[in-house]
């Protein structure tokens, strides 16, 4: 902390070349034909259930209920009835709840990301009394299962008059996400070479400009990685929205998906089509952002 670092950017470029070479050596080690074969086998095994679900979603009701999806190959029957049914105005129209899911998910990702990156910076590079105890408390909070907080939280929301609004979901998802987010981002920020921060400080930057001008650009992969995690978690969440979204106007797609099969589960043949409608967004997000995802995970592990 006290030694002054040279005012050059060499440490950064050096660490970058190191990272590249580490990645290159990892690449060399992993490109053996056997490893490729293993990867292909794993990928196929992993995809089969989803593939079966996709096939099922195009099969007629009676075929789904009486036979397995693999019989599709001996007796191919294709129908769009299932997709028509999940977009049916008479029953559950998943399109109506698509927007709810977006409205719930986006703030539930943005709020914890903003708060956690600020908090992580404070824990990593600022000194204030009680810092360690606070950090341990946050670390320990990850252990608390969210199920035990459901009823007390709902009671608090009712007292505050927030029940049956999106706030219950945004706040719940944010609070449940914060401990892990702070912890992950803290570890990432801590790994930024201290010389970099000190250099900025010598140039006259305060905490605000260090955070926004120096750290935030470096932080992007980590933010993206956690953002994807949180996005998938919130998008696929059923328990939290079931408990806190007290009316159909604010309930997300997952809640309606769970109701899709009907009161006594008689319409379960619709679930495969419903599942595919609901995974469109997460799959798109994942495919678009996956390079950040991999980079974010690597960045935490490969030391520069």
């Amino acid at each position: 902390m006290t030694t002054a670092a040279p005012l050059t950017t060499t440490p950064v470029s050096k660490s970058e070349t190191k990272k590249l070479s580490a990645a290159a050596s990892a690449k060399n080690k992993l490109t053996s034909p056997w490893a490729s074969l293993a990867a292909v086998v794993l990928a196929v095994l992993w995809t089969i259930p989803t593939f079966g679900l996709l096939i099922s979603s195009f099969r007629p009701e009676m075929a789904i209920k009486r036979t397995g999806w693999w019989t599709f190959f001996s007796d191919p029957e294709v129908t769009l009835d299932n997709y028509r049914a999940v977009f049916d105005d008479g029953g559950i129209n998943l399109a109506d709840f698509f927007l709810n899911s977006l409205v719930i998910t986006i703030p539930s990702v943005v709020i914890p990301l903003c708060l956690a990156s600020l908090a992580a910076y404070a824990f990593a590079w600022m000194n204030f009394p009680g810092k360690n105890i606070l950090f341990i408390a946050i670390f320990a909070l990850q252990i608390v299962p969210l199920q035990v907080t459901l009823v007390p939280l709902l009671q608090l929301y009712v007292k505050a008059g927030l029940n049956n609004t999106f706030w219950t979901l945004w706040l719940s998802h944010s609070t449940f996400a914060l401990p892990l987010a702070i912890y992950l981002l803290h570890n990432f920020i801590k790994e930024v070479p201290s010389s970099l921060i000190e250099a900025a400080r010598i140039d006259g930057a305060g905490h605000v400009s260090i955070f926004f001008k120096v750290l935030l650009p470096l932080l992007t992969p980590a933010l993206a990685a956690f953002g994807i995690f949180q996005f998938l978690w919130v998008w696929n969440d059923l328990l939290v929205s079931l408990t806190f979204a007290g009316s159909p106007e604010i309930s997300p797609m997952t809640v309606q998906l769970s109701n899709l099969s009907g009161t006594r589960g008689t319409a379960w043949h619709l679930l495969s089509a419903g599942a595919f409608v609901s995974i469109v967004v997460p799959v798109t997000v994942f495919l678009l952002l996956q390079r950040y995802f991999v980079r974010g995970l690597l960045a935490g592990s490969v030391k520069g």
Binding site: L154, V158, L242, T243, G246, S258
Partner: peptide, 15 residues
């Protein structure tokens, strides 16, 4: 469909 568990949660939470 989760009515049977959720109604108890809602009643106890005052919602």
């Amino acid at each position: 469909k989760a009515f049977e568990t959720q109604i108890l949660v809602r009643a106890e939470a005052g919602n």
